[in-house]
Design a binder for these strands. Structure first.
Length: 271
DNA sequence: AGTGCGGCCTGTCCGC
DNA sequence: TGCGGACAGGCCGCAC
């Protein structure tokens, strides 16, 4: 479900409700996520104060005195601020108990996500250690993209989705950024020129930034922390538009699988 | 070393 | 209406 703009939307939604709070504990209803959940999570969190909420790639890092709560939403996860008395739905696997009867509720039907309590530096965790640059930071530039791409034969679309190259570019925004840059997604990464990587870098930053400003993309079930929809779906140019006309030239949008992920492009605008 | 594939899970939608 | 199969926003670990 969530790509970087959706995770950023959740982060912005939950931050003001968490920072400064003393946690009352946690309720764990289903332990088996991508990594098994700590049975004693509640005991470990009890009484601790939340000092900050950060995002690294698609991971949320809830900074708590004495540790970090690492959360990933996988493909179908969501985090919502609710009241403890709100009915528990199927797949509400974890509640983080906040003051005054409020809870942060983790819901994930497919269970590809994770919730982990870390007491060491999160950046050194094996899941975060090898991550590439943040796309919206200065260190992600055409230079880094171009030099990393030399001699790489994989499709440029797979290349920009490689988290060692740059994080946070998922299946939707990879297709969208390549459309905006006029680059065909099947082109081998090593054959894309420097000027085209300049354009692609700019477009990756822009498409992610615009989506964050519209609250992310709701395709079927994405919601912000308060349950609100993401409106970027209205701005998608190619993703999910197979057989429809290109908004730019009118040609029919095509789709194919690249490395087992559906990929969308305009055969006329993207060469 | 880079690449592609299988697998983790449930829900939904489509064609028959 | 029911049923099987394909597919879904992520990403790790493995074999080649």
């Amino acid at each position: 479900m969530p790509e970087l703009p959706e995770v950023e939307t959740v982060k912005r939604g939950i931050s003001p409700h968490l920072i400064g709070c003393h946690l009352r504990g946690a309720v764990v209803r289903h332990r088996q996520l991508r990594l098994p959940l700590d049975q004693n999570l509640g005991e470990k969190l009890k009484g601790r104060k939340v000092c900050g909420v950060e995002r690294r790639a698609k991971y949320l890092l809830i900074g708590v005195e004495g540790g970090t709560l690492l959360v990933h939403l996988g493909m179908s996860g969501s985090l919502r601020l609710e009241k403890e008395s709100d009915p528990v739905r199927k797949h509400d696997h974890v509640d983080i108990l906040l003051p005054r009867g409020k809870v942060l509720r983790y819901h994930d039907p497919r269970r590809f996500g994770l919730v982990r309590w870390l007491t060491t530096a999160p950046g050194k965790h094996r899941l975060l250690r090898h991550l590439g640059p943040e796309p919206l930071e200065k260190e992600f530039s055409a230079d880094t993209l171009f030099s990393a791409s030399r001699k790489r034969k994989a499709a440029v679309k797979s290349f920009v989705m490689d988290s060692k190259v740059v994080v946070g570019v998922g299946n939707i925004y990879a297709s969208e950024a390549l459309f905006r840059a006029g680059i065909r997604p099947t082109t081998p990464a090593g054959k894309v020129s420097k000027p085209r990587y300049e354009t692609l870098t700019t477009q990756i930053k822009e498409v992610l930034q615009e989506s964050i400003e519209r609250g992310g993309t709701t395709l079927r079930d994405f919601r912000g922390a308060g349950g609100e929809l993401g409106y970027f779906v209205q701005s998608l140019d190619v993703y999910g538009r197979t057989g429809e006309g290109c908004r730019c030239c009118g040609a029919t949008i095509k789709t194919a699988n690249i490395a087992q992920r559906s990929t969308f492009w305009c055969p006329r605008c993207q060469r």
